[in-house]
Design a protein around this nucleic acid. Structure first.
Lengths: 147, 147
DNA sequence: TTTTCTGCAAATGCTTTGCATGGGA
DNA sequence: TCCCATGCAAAGCATTTGCAGAAAA
């Protein structure tokens, strides 16, 4: 786990600003979210944190993530079947590519996104300020095991 | 409720093909989904069907929708908080533009979508076969009441 | 010392499932 | 008649909440 120190520091100062306490459990959760590795679920975060702090509960992970959402420091990717996933390194809307087999999530850098947003505005007259762009399919590894 | 007769007939023949029975409850649910009005939730469908068939249960609505999903005749829009919503008139993935104020939903026809899908595949190596593209913002009417 | 956080367990909300009865074909 | 569909109730899951004890500041 290699947390982005700048992201981590930013999150920590946001907590201090709001007079929120920096507990060992919260610090461990922040480190994972700031690492930028994957888009962990609550269960995934919990399974890592519990190694260092065996008494940690799922409820604490949920509460910490709710706090970070309120602070605008984590992006929640909702899934009605399966668990939600969280992105603490890029807490603003951006496209995701999800492998339906291994559940891995990748962030593409799409040149055509601004053009598409412009197309939406032009065609509908909407003032677009948020989006949820997910592409689903098979990642290169999972394609090999397929037909 | 003004069901698209062609859509309704198509759904009915799909059921018959699969030797599925056309019950009054199923017909009522199909009519709502084929109407193309809005993107109803299970609860919303249930509340309408139960007027004509007071013994109808939520389970039946869920089971019918699961069946229609398997037949590829309804699109499920997943929401982890709140209920899922369903689109029976365009049961294939397509972008939505959602007004965060009046909750109105528009289906844009985006020329740049195929280019973006190609960009995703090229950049990530994924074999993309599905997507969830939602844009959120203010519709023209709701922008007037704003700053 | 004060106030907040933690962690357990119970509660919640949506959805699914098991099973006996009812009803299409 | 023969199965399948219905509908009730219970179960399943991810998430939230209440509260007493623990621990930051």
């Amino acid at each position: 786990m290699q947390p982005d120190e700048a992201r981590l520091d930013h999150m920590l100062s946001k907590l201090r600003e709001r007079r929120q306490r920096i507990t060992p459990q919260r610090l461990a959760i922040l480190r994972i979210l700031a690492s930028g590795e994957g888009h962990p679920s609550v269960e995934g975060i919990y399974s890592i944190v519990v190694k260092d702090f065996p008494t940690t509960s799922l409820a604490t992970v949920y509460k910490t993530i709710t706090l970070l959402k309120d602070l605008g420091e984590v992006l929640e990717l909702e899934f009605s079947q399966g668990s939600n996933r969280y992105d603490g390194s890029k807490p603003f809307p951006h496209p995701h590519v999800v492998c339906t087999m291994c559940k891995n999530i990748v962030d593409p850098d799409l040149q055509s996104l601004s053009a598409m947003t412009a197309e939406v505005s032009e065609q509908t007259g909407f003032k677009v300020n948020n989006h949820r762009l997910d592409f689903y399919g098979l990642c290169p590894q999972c394609q090999e095991g397929e037909g």
